[in-house]
Design a protein around this nucleic acid. Structure first.
Length: 626
RNA sequence: GACCUCGUAGCUCAGCUGGAUAGAGCAACUGCCUUCUAAGCAGUAGGUCACAGGUUCGAAUCCUGUCGGGGUCACCA
C-alpha cells in the first residue's frame, strides 16, 4: 500500500476508535505546505461535529493515536485545526533503496485502446504556430496515455479536399507559370500556400469595386435568387442602427459578391470537376497535394511528431451517408421536404443540425460521423480523443450527442481534447491577413537562438559538429515545446514574436541542464556506488527530492485524467528545482563518506531518470552534456 | 440576441475536486564560481486573485449578477 493510503486508513481507524463514530467520513489528506513542519496534513474541521471536541483537541488526539498505532508516522504537530504528520525518514529511504535503478515510471497495462487524432491539417497552406500547439499536445497526450498503460494509436485525418484546396490549385493553374518546388527551391507546402495567398489577393483585387458598389446599393446579380438575397441584405444594412450591425450586413454583402465572382465560380466548378473525377483536375490535385505532403513530413520530422495511421478526407467524406440512412430508419434523424436530413437537439439545449444536404452530399459533420464509425471498425478502441481547437467545442458536442443517440457503443468513449488559440500581441493569427507565425520559420529561428546562447555561454567547446547540431536541435525544440506545453491546454496563450523564447528559468533547457549536470557527475564518479550499502540518514533536501520522485505515478495518472501535458511540465520543474537545491546544499563527489556519496549518486541517478522520463512524455529528448 | 469560455504581481503563467501567511519564471535589485557544469542556487521588492453580492467554521477556488476579453450559433471545413 502507498503512503497516503496507509495514513488515510490510520485516520479512519483513529476516528472510529476515538470518537465511536457510527458514520465513516471520507478522509482526505493533502501535502503539508512547505512553510509548516510535516509531510501530510489532515484538516479536522469537517469531523469536529463527530468528535464533539475543539478542532485542536480533535487533531491532537488523532495525532497521538497515529503516532502510537501507525508505523510510518514518526511525529505530528497541530496548528488550529490542521494536523501535520511527519512520515518516518525510513519510509523515504526504503523507497530510494527499492527504486533508484528504475528507468520507467509507467503505470501497468489497462488493456484498453485509445486513439488520439491530432494535427489534421488542410493541404492548402503550410503549418503555423497554432498547428504546432496542436501537434505538440497531440503527441504528448499520446505519450502520456501510452505510459498510463493504454495502447495508443496516433491518427492524422488529413483535410485534403474542398474549396480551399481548389483555390490554391486554380491560382497555380492561372498564375503559376508551372512553378514547382524544384524550380523555386521552396518547400512544397510553402509553394502551395503561396498560391492560396495569390488567390485571395486576386479575389480581393477583382472584387474590390463590385463590393464597394454593392454596399452602396449600385449592383445587380445575374442570378435571381442571389439578387433577392442581396436586396434583402441591403435592406437590413440600410435599416441597421449600430456599427456592429452595419459591419455584419456589409460583410454579408461582401461575401455574396465574393462568392459570385468569376474567380470563385470557376473555383467551385473546379471542385465539381474534382468530385466528378475529371482526370486533369485530379492530376493537378495529386501533384500539388504531393508537394504539400512532402513539406508536412519534413515539418513533422523536425518537430519530432509521428503518426500510426493517416485518414484522408477524400476517402472518408462520403462515409457518413450510410449512417445517416441508419439514423433515418431509427427515427433519430428526420427529412425536410427538400430532402435535407436533420437532427433536432433542442431538447438537449442545442439547435437543429443539418447532417446531409438536400442534394445528398455530405457536410462536415456527416464525414465525422462516418470517420468515427470507420475508426471504430478498424481498431475497436475504447476511447477516441480528438485534439482540436476550442472554436469547435460546439461541433464536437453535437457530434458526440449524435453518436449517442444513434446508440453507438463507442460514443461514451469519445472526447474532445479542446485547446485554446495561440494569440499574438496584435490579436488572433489570421491566414488571410498574413499575421501567422510560420512553423518552419519558428523552428529555424529557435535553432539559431539555441546556437547563439550556447556560444555566448562558451559551452560549445569540445563538441564536434554533429554533437553541436544535435545539441542546438534538442535545445531549441525543448525550449519551444516546453514553452507551449507548460500552459494549461484549455486556455488561450500568448506568443510574442518580438521576444525570443527563454532558455532560463522555467524552461525546457533548464530541465535538460539539470539532467546533463547529473550525467556529468555520474561520469566522474570513481567509487562503486551502485552496489554500495547506503546509510539511512537523509538530508532535508534529499528527503524532499525523494518525495517529489515518489509522486510521479500520481502525477502521471493526473495528466491523463486531465488530458494535460502542463501537469507534467509543472512536475518536471518541481523535480529539477528539488534536485538543484540539493546540488547546492550538499556535495556529492567531494563527500568523503563513501556511503553518503553512494546514496547521493543513487538519488542523482534516479532524479535524472525521472527527468528523462518526464521530458519524454512531452516529446522532448535529453542531451548528455550541454 | 442566445450559448460556451477566460479575467491571479509590470509581463508570461501555476494554484481552482473549498482549507493555514495566494506561488513560480521573466524583467529590476543583492549575494554565491581557486571546490561536482552559474542555462544554477539563495535573497529583496512587487497582489483590493476584474467588480458586487451569496453559501460556509473557512472562498482565488462553489453559486448569482455586473463589467471586460475571446469563441460558437453556415446546405464552409
Amino acid at each position: 500500500m502507498n503512503i497516503e493510503g496507509e495514513i488515510i486508513e490510520g485516520i479512519e481507524k483513529a476516528i472510529t476508535a476515538l470518537f465511536a463514530s457510527p458514520e465513516a467520513p471520507s478522509v482526505k489528506i493533502e501535502k503539508t505546505k512547505s512553510d509548516f513542519v510535516g509531510d501530510y496534513t489532515y484538516v479536522v474541521f469537517p469531523i469536529v461535529r463527530l468528535s464533539r471536541k475543539s478542532p485542536e483537541q480533535t487533531a491532537e488526539e488523532i495525532g497521538q493515536y497515529l503516532k502510537s498505532n501507525c508505523a510510518i508516522i514518526h511525529n505530528f504537530n497541530v496548528i488550529k485545526g490542521f494536523l501535520n504528520l511527519e512520515v518516518d525518514a525510513s519510509v523515504w529511504f526504503n523507497y530510494l533503496q527499492l527504486n533508484w535503478n528504475k528507468t520507467s515510471f509507467s503505470l501497468p497495462s489497462k488493456n484498453e485502446k485509445v486513439m488520439v487524432e491530432y494535427s489534421s491539417p488542410n493541404t492548402n497552406k503550410p503549418l503555423h504556430l497554432g498547428h504546432i500547439r496542436n501537434n505538440l499536445l497531440g503527441y504528448s497526450l499520446s505519450q502520456i496515455f501510452d505510459n498510463n498503460g493504454y495502447e495508443v494509436i496516433k491518427a492524422n485525418l488529413i483535410n485534403d479536399r474542398g474549396i480551399h484546396i481548389c483555390k490554391s490549385m486554380l491560382a497555380w493553374k492561372l498564375f503559376g507559370n508551372n512553378e514547382t518546388p524544384e524550380s523555386t527551391g521552396l518547400k512544397g507546402d510553402h509553394l502551395v500556400g503561396r498560391y492560396y495567398v495569390v488567390f485571395e489577393n486576386k479575389l480581393r483585387e477583382q472584387t474590390a469595386d463590385d463590393i464597394e458598389n454593392a454596399i452602396a446599393g449600385n449592383f445587380t446579380f445575374a442570378d435571381a435568387t442571389i439578387q433577392k438575397r442581396y436586396t434583402d441584405a441591403l435592406e437590413k444594412l440600410n435599416a441597421a442602427k449600430d456599427e456592429k450591425q452595419i459591419a455584419k450586413f456589409s460583410d454579408d454583402i461582401k461575401e455574396l459578391v465574393r462568392n459570385n465572382s468569376q474567380l470563385l465560380l470557376t473555383c467551385q466548378e473546379m471542385l465539381r470537376q474534382w468530385e466528378a473525377g475529371d482526370k486533369e483536375t485530379i492530376a493537378l490535385w495529386e501533384m500539388m497535394n504531393g508537394w504539400v505532403y512532402k513539406g508536412f513530413e519534413s515539418t513533422y520530422s523536425r518537430l519530432g511528431v509521428s503518426f500510426d495511421k493517416y485518414y484522408y478526407e477524400s476517402n472518408t467524406y462520403k462515409l457518413g451517408k450510410d449512417i445517416v440512412q441508419e439514423g433515418l430508419a431509427k427515427g433519430v434523424f428526420y427529412q425536410k421536404p427538400d430532402n435535407s436530413v436533420w437532427i433536432d437537439l433542442t431538447n438537449d439545449g442545442l439547435d437543429e443540425k443539418l447532417v446531409q444536404r438536400g442534394d445528398g452530399t455530405s457536410v462536415y459533420i456527416t464525414q465525422d460521423i462516418g470517420t468515427a464509425e470507420l475508426k471504430y471498425q478498424e481498431f475497436g478502441m475504447e476511447r477516441s480523443i480528438y485534439v482540436v481547437g476550442n472554436e469547435q467545442d460546439y461541433h464536437f458536442k453535437v457530434l458526440f450527442l449524435i453518436m449517442q443517440k444513434l446508440g453507438k457503443s463507442y460514443a461514451n468513449g469519445m472526447y474532445h481534447a479542446s485547446y485554446g488559440m495561440v494569440d499574438l500581441p496584435t490579436g488572433k493569427m489570421k491566414s488571410r491577413e498574413g499575421t501567422v507565425v510560420d512553423a518552419d520559420d519558428l523552428i529555424s529561428e529557435m535553432y539559431q537562438t539555441a546556437k547563439d546562447k550556447t556560444i555566448e555561454l562558451g559551452k560549445s567547446d569540445g563538441l564536434n559538429e554533429d554533437e553541436l547540431h544535435n545539441l542546438y536541435h534538442q535545445l531549441s525544440l525543448s525550449a519551444l515545446k516546453f514553452f507551449i506545453l507548460k500552459v494549461d491546454p484549455k486556455k488561450r496563450m500568448l506568443f510574442n514574436p518580438e521576444e525570443s523564447i527563454d532558455f532560463q528559468g522555467d524552461t525546457g533547457p533548464f530541465i535538460q541542464y539539470t539532467y546533463a549536470r547529473i550525467q556529468s557527475i555520474l561520469r566522474q564518479a570513481k567509487i562503486n556506488w551502485q552496489d554500495a550499502e547506503i546509510p539511512n540518514n537523509l538530508h532535508p533536501s534529499e528527503i524532499n527530492t525523494i518525495k517529489v520522485l515518489y509522486d510521479f505515478p500520481t502525477v502521471l495518472a493526473e495528466a491523463s485524467r486531465e488530458y494535460s501535458p502542463a501537469v507534467i511540465c509543472q512536475y518536471c520543474l518541481d523535480l529539477a528545482r528539488a534536485y538543484n537545491r540539493l546540488y547546492n546544499e550538499v556535495s556529492i563527489l567531494r563527500e568523503t563518506d563513501e556511503g553518503l556519496q553512494s546514496l547521493r549518486l543513487k538519488l542523482a541517478h534516479h532524479t535524472a531518470e525521472g527527468l528523462k522520463f518526464g521530458l519524454n512524455l512531452l516529446g522532448i529528448n535529453v542531451v548528455e552534456r550541454m
